[in-house]
Design a protein around this nucleic acid. Structure first.
Lengths: 217, 217
DNA sequence: CGCGAATGTGACCGGGTGGTCATAGTTAGC
DNA sequence: GCTAACTATGACCACCCGGTCACATTCGCG
């Protein structure tokens, strides 16, 4: 966690450091990210970074946490469940669209998400992803549980399993249109607009449909 | 691609280099992997590596390719479709079990799979994953198409979408029991035996069930 | 044997790394 | 205006990196 000095800082300077760190870690990952580059891009001496954070990992963990919090905050308005009379599947498609739109508009957050999702070192990955997973669970599980309660999802739905698959699929969906080499059979990279949206919905439907009640078979 | 020299090599020496490279890249990733470490572990001068491969990337790409080929070869006996009268879902569970069992028994291949799956650099990732994806598609799409043809999967199954989700889910399933920080709602890491198997089947069922015909709803 | 081709080697190169620290500058309170 | 606490700085440290190359060794073959 950042030192007190970090919180005393001029917000503009703090922001410069945070954004520089997001850009560097987001494009180079944790081990590949350079503190020299971050300091230079932020217009700050390298020594200053160590006045704010214990070490490289401390900075990376902070960047990852702040990023996941700001993504969560941006999606929060879309996490209140389906509107009156709105089918659950339609609502979920909207949520996915919002997610992808956010990533399209926020390359820094997208990069950091990719870097934490793809972090190889087990210790770093565990430390950094645990809070992210918690946010995902906290945001999505109530949606599924409500849908089961209202009968929109089958009562015998394996909520934990469905949640796990969605937490794997959703960030992947949100990144794949912008990061090459992620998708396989379905072409998501480089797609935009309605075609991107439709492709993402196909994948979500593959996972979600079985649990829906009243789907024509 | 490796130079001719590599193919002329004493197989035992070749094997030492390959295994050392798998271990290093598998644990440290591409950018984090050290040629010095590989050369030392293989009992070979660093200069020799550059007699066999153009550069670091060439070696990594070769390691990734060989690894995916050997995984494919090991799973090939399980890719011939369900036996007579065997339900498709049961067959697919067996395939997943075989996959996980392979990863349990082959930590080197597991590490390389993790390293290629989680590679952050877009160029490296694209180059290294394209052939892997091709093998996955080649191995799994016929299974799905056959199952549609025999009526075991619904005729309106979106085979491409299902394939995409499976190609995302299956390697994740095969790695999660051994690599911490990958699973979220469902506890797969550290599980063994029947409990691990049952958990994996729950996740596969979540994806696969909707497409099955004749499932009680 | 001899000789040319192929292979093996490790010191060396320029450059980058995370992290430290003595020093200088800035701020706040009295 | 003085002082004490806080903050900023960048040269410097030991170490590691991918890649090269002049030279030693081994091999294949006539």
């Amino acid at each position: 966690m950042p030192r007190q000095t970090w919180h005393n800082l001029d917000p503009e300077r703090r922001d410069r450091v945070l954004r520089a760190a997001m850009a560097e870690f987001g494009s180079q990952g944790y081990s590949g990210g350079s503190l020299n580059v971050i300091a230079r891009a932020a217009g700050v001496a390298k020594g200053s970074l160590f006045q704010y954070f214990d070490d490289k990992f401390d900075l990376f963990a902070y960047v990852a946490e702040q990023t996941s919090l700001s993504i969560y905050a941006a999606l929060l308005p879309h996490l209140d469940g389906p509107g009156a009379g709105q089918p659950f599947a339609d609502y979920f498609d909207e949520l996915v669209d919002a997610w992808i739109a956010f990533m399209a508009a926020h390359p820094l957050e997208r990069g950091v998400t990719a870097a934490t999702t793809m972090e190889l070192d087990p210790d770093v990955r565990s430390a950094v992803r645990a809070p992210v997973h918690q946010l995902y669970v906290q945001g999505i599980r109530p949606l599924l549980e409500n849908a089961v309660a209202t009968g929109e999802l089958r009562s015998d739905t394996d909520v934990d399993a469905l949640l796990s698959v969605l937490i794997l699929l959703l960030p992947h969906l949100a990144l794949a249109p912008f990061e090459p080499g992620l998708d396989s059979a379905v072409q998501l990279f480089g797609r935009t607009g309605a075609r991107r949206s439709a492709t993402a919905h196909r994948l979500v439907a593959t996972v979600l449909t079985p649990a829906l009640t009243g789907v024509a078979r």
